[in-house]
Amino acid sequence: MNSWINLNALWKIVVVGLLTGAGLPALFAIGLRLLTPPAPPTPAGQAAAQRPTVGPIAYALAGLCFAVVLAAIGWGISVIVNHS
């Protein structure tokens, strides 16, 4: 860490940014995926047979995904507020 560029802060921003900026949309995508039965018209065949309908476990897991996303938003707001 020198006075022209703060590498210490930089890598933290990259890591936190990746976890929240890319991780949360991915989690949201997983939640959405869990709530959606595989599209019937696509004869993809590979993973489609796994889960023909949405079961209670899928619902619970999807709920967990969305809850984590919401919690992260709460964390974001608290970052703004506590920065004072």
Partner: peptide
């Protein structure tokens, strides 16, 4: 560059994870 890299990873993951979700449902959810 940092923001762009994160968005690239996020976009890739999101499309990969929802690849067998129908276009309509995906659009609505996102």
């Amino acid at each position: 560059f940092i923001a762009g890299a994160i968005a690239t990873v996020g976009t890739y993951l999101v499309y990969r994870l929802t690849r067998d979700v129908s276009e309509r449902t995906r659009g609505h959810g996102f």
